[in-house]
Each structure stands twice: as C-alpha cells, then as structure tokens.
Simulated scan of single mutants.
Amino acid sequence: MHERLANLLGATALAVTDLVLAEATEAAGVSASGAAALIVLSAAPGLGVTELGRRVGLTQSAAARMVDGLEAAGLAERRRSGGRAVHVRLTRRGEEAAARMLGARAAPLAGTLTVLGDDEREALTALLSKLLTRLYGQIGDADVLCRMCDRACCTEGAVCPVGQAERDAAER
C-alpha cells in the first residue's frame, strides 16, 4: 500500500513541477534556474552571486553565468558594495517578470486543486504542511525549499510550515 502511495506522490510531484516550471519559465522567458533566481531575488534582494546560486542549486560559476544572462535580458543587475562584494538586485523589469512568474505559477496549481472540495482542500493543506515540515528536516534549508514559493501567499492568515520548522530547529 505504501509503495503505491509513494509512487502516486512521486508522479504528482513531478507533474506539478513540470506544470509550474513550464508556466513560470514561459512567463519570463528564462530557464528554470533563472525563474527561481528571479523569485528568490524578489524576496531577498541584494544576495551575492554565490548565495543566490546556492539557493537555486547552482555552483558559483554556473550562478555567475546565470546572472550574466539575467543582466543581458535586463532583468537583474550586479552592484558592488565595499571591497569585492557584489550583490544582485532585480531591475524594474525583473521585478515585473518575477510577479508575472508567480501569477503564472499559481494558475496550474489552482487549476489542479479545483477537483477537490473544501473539506478535501483543508485536509490536503494539513497533510502538505506536515510533509513540508518533514522535508525541511531532510533538506534543512528554508531558502532552498521555498525557492519558487509565493512567500506572501503562504504567510497571509497562516503560519508557513517551513518557516515554523526552521524556527523550531533553531530553538533546539
């Protein structure tokens, strides 16, 4: 029984990932890592290239090339700040692209959930919160786990389960 459930979860996770990435990358005309970088920078402006790369799963050199591409597209810019430190910020065009991507990301997710009734959505919310708490325990980094999240959406009127898991881990 658990093997079937795990398989169903895997297929669902992959299908949702494919839908979300297709919509997000199309909305901004960037790669999957570029899409994640735009969303990360919209929530945490001024990250260094290395930290940005860590959050989106790229090496420092790959992150630098990705930022080059975002700069060439007019979506981001590097800014020097004292010494050798370089921070990446979104341009106005990059901020608009990130907002479009979050909207585009939301559409297939909301569409997928339309097959569920109110009680089922409530139950799924509780189950996903529990699973995300467990995943935080395995991944151990909210910035990585939530790299494609609409952070405002997750914290309006509720507690983000990943953020709570991170606070709980810090207290231990």
Rank of each mutant, 00 (worst) to 15 (best):
R4C: 01
A6P: 03
L9V: 12
T12D: 03
A13C: 04
L14D: 08
T17P: 06
V20G: 00
L21Q: 06
A22Q: 09
A22Y: 12
A24H: 06
E26R: 07
A27N: 01
A28H: 06
V30Y: 07
A32I: 02
G34H: 04
G34K: 02
A35Q: 08
A35G: 04
A36L: 12
A37V: 08
S42D: 13
G53P: 08
R55C: 07
R55Q: 10
V56W: 10
T59V: 09
A64I: 10
A64P: 12
R65M: 11
V67Y: 13
V67P: 15
L70N: 09
A72P: 15
A73P: 15
A73N: 13
G74Q: 10
A76F: 14
R78E: 15
R80T: 11
G82R: 11
G82S: 13
G83E: 14
G83A: 12
R84I: 11
A85F: 14
V86F: 08
V86T: 15
L90A: 11
L90M: 14
T91F: 15
E95V: 08
G103C: 05
A107L: 06
T112F: 15
L113M: 13
T114M: 09
L116K: 06
G117S: 05
E120K: 06
E120C: 03
R121K: 13
T125Q: 08
T125S: 08
K130M: 02
K130A: 10
Y136A: 00
Q138I: 12
Q138H: 14
G140W: 08
D141H: 02
A142C: 01
A142N: 03
A142G: 00
D143E: 07
L145A: 01
C146Y: 06
C146A: 04
C149W: 10
C154P: 03
G157L: 04
C160A: 04
P161A: 00
V162P: 03
Q164T: 10
Q164C: 03
Q164G: 10
A165V: 04
A165E: 03
A165R: 01
E166S: 02
A170G: 01
A170S: 07
E171C: 00
